[in-house]
Design a protein around this nucleic acid. Sequence first.
DNA 1: GGGTCATATTTAGGGATTACGATATGATAA
DNA 2: TTATCATATCGTAATCCCTAAATATGACCC
Lengths: 112, 112
Amino acid sequence: MTEIEYCTTRKIRKVDIDEYEDISRIINAAGNKARIAILEIISEYEEVCTCELQPALGMPQPTITTHLSKMYDVGLLKKKQVWRFSYYYINPKYRELVNTILKDRKKEKETS
Amino acid sequence: MTEIEYCTTRKIRKVDIDEYEDISRIINAAGNKARIAILEIISEYEEVCTCELQPALGMPQPTITTHLSKMYDVGLLKKKQVWRFSYYYINPKYRELVNTILKDRKKEKETS
DNA sequence: GGGTCATATTTAGGGATTACGATATGATAA
DNA sequence: TTATCATATCGTAATCCCTAAATATGACCC
């Protein structure tokens, strides 16, 4: 016998963890309270610029830019330049994911 | 004038970031490639024990237990004791969220 | 009791993350 | 071209995370 035997109840298929790398980066970028707050605002207003988020979140501009960049870098957000503003919006590819997260938060709030 | 004025294009509603604390813990617990792999297996087999995951993931038991605990602690997973096994399953409350994550991963895979 | 199997905890180090002040870039307006 | 506004980057300290070896617990069987 060459392979180690574990509990022999069932044979579970083997998985390659690296196949979950890309999606984990997306989910990870969403796994922060400030960033979920940002996602909620963006999904409410369609697209927002950094300066609009400052009074809404009550945090300094570099902090907001860092959060936006993190979500932009993994592809969760997209960006467009209008006049002197950078407008961020949710990558349509992940709109359903974001909606599910935001919906779950509201469920959470009701049941507490 | 007492309040700082930012770009005056729109007035965005203020949000309380702490209201996103609970959901961010859930999302954060899911934001790791090993844990998403675990979620996929669990959602495929309904419920799995730690020892079944060892050969499937190819990682040592303490690492797997740590990942499972992290998801259990925030409420993403639930646990039941059967004989000498701990069976973990997805909290029904978050099944839709998990499905959306796994579905997005498959979409990802197709378009690459 | 003693042995075994499944699981959990402890611990550690290397790395990543968060927040944010200071500073830099870059576009626009005067 | 100089000032201003919006945004981005840098630097850094505090904190948290990932992995996994060593160890402990705890249920079950003899």
